[in-house]
Simulated scan of single mutants.
Amino acid sequence: MNVLLDNLDLYGRAFLGTIELFLVAAVGSLVLGAIVAAMRVSPVPILRTFGMLYVNLIRNTPLTLVLFFFAFAYPRLEIVDLSFFTRACIGLILYTAAFVCEVLRSGINTVPVGQAEASRALGFGFNQTLTTIVMPQAVRAVVPPLTNVQIALLKNTTIASGFSVFQAGGIYQELSENGYNVLVGLLWIALGFLILVVPLTLLQRNLDRRWSVAT
């Protein structure tokens, strides 16, 4: 307990930093994933091709490599000067969006084709059909896997610790330098992640129970 109490400010900054990184990346990945999913089911061939290439490229690229690029390679390009935190958010968003896209696409495929055909017969365009008819039903069908993707994103923020975005690496170094038991310190970090993951799991179960689709 002394490890936590003596370094409460350090753990507090790390905890809040993780929440901030997760929230920004979660919202961004949901938005980008929905856009890419729309591309993948679009009637325009070039959009479908772009969506397919994006998903296949990102899903087969390790997250560590993505974050390494934004941490060390991006600054050398001298395009726009971004903070380290912003670059980490971009990396997590780009990576997670590919998985969000596939989850949403699988949900879209569960919606009967006849509903889209009926909406087009009523004069609805592709965008109207997707946003008002198909996507609301698809989201209900993919609540559990979509929440699992976000839980994975939360845990993936630890990878950013190696690039000094999440402070787990900083905690390890400071505890070691000050003579604290590092193993106990890491167990407190694990408890912090448990505190963050459990509410997401409970939310998933609640939404799944309320939005379950009758089969």
Rank of each mutant, 00 (worst) to 15 (best):
A26Q: 07
G12A: 07
P45V: 08
I171S: 02
Q167G: 03
A34N: 04
L16G: 09
N127A: 15
R59F: 11
N127R: 13
V44F: 15
E20D: 09
G91L: 02
A118S: 13
L53A: 14
V3K: 02
I151K: 09
R209W: 10
A73Q: 04
L154M: 15
E117M: 07
L23Q: 04
T86P: 07
V24F: 11
E174V: 13
I79P: 11
P136G: 12
F22L: 12
V103W: 01
R140H: 09
Y11W: 07
A37N: 11
V100K: 03
T131Y: 12
S42A: 06
F166I: 02
V165S: 01
A73T: 14
W188L: 05
T132Q: 12
F126N: 04
L175N: 00
A98Q: 02
P45L: 13
F68L: 15
N2A: 08
G123T: 11
R87T: 06
T96M: 02
D81F: 14
N2G: 00
L183D: 09
P45A: 13
T131C: 12
V31A: 11
L130R: 03
F193M: 05
L63T: 03
L130E: 05
A168E: 05
L77S: 09
G114T: 06
P136R: 09
F163G: 02
S42W: 09
N178Y: 06
T64V: 15
A34F: 11
P145I: 08
I195W: 07
Q115P: 10
P112S: 14
L146I: 12
F68W: 11
E177I: 12
F126T: 03
S164M: 07
V139L: 14
L77R: 14
I133P: 03
T110R: 10
A34Y: 05
K155V: 07
V113A: 15
G114N: 08
I93V: 13
E174P: 01
V41A: 08
V27T: 08
R140L: 05
F124K: 06
V165W: 00
T110I: 03
W211I: 06
P199T: 11
L202F: 14
G169M: 09
P112Q: 09
A37G: 11
L194V: 12
G162Y: 10
G162W: 01
N178P: 00
F99W: 06
Q173N: 11
G114C: 12
L53G: 13
L32M: 08
F15Y: 14
F70P: 07
N181D: 15
S161P: 01
M39P: 11
M39F: 15
L175A: 02
A121R: 05
N181V: 06
T132E: 10
L154W: 01
L53I: 15
L207Q: 04
R205T: 09
V165A: 03
M135G: 05
F166C: 00
Y11N: 05
I79G: 12
T49C: 05
R13L: 04
T129E: 08
R40E: 00
L21N: 02
I93Q: 03
V111E: 10
R120F: 15
L32H: 10
V113M: 13
S119E: 03
R210Y: 10
L63P: 00
R76Y: 11
N60F: 08
E78Q: 14
T96I: 04
L153W: 05
W211Q: 04
I133G: 04
L94V: 10
F85C: 00
A168R: 09
G179A: 08
V80K: 03
C89Y: 00
R105P: 12
A168C: 03
L8E: 00
P45R: 13
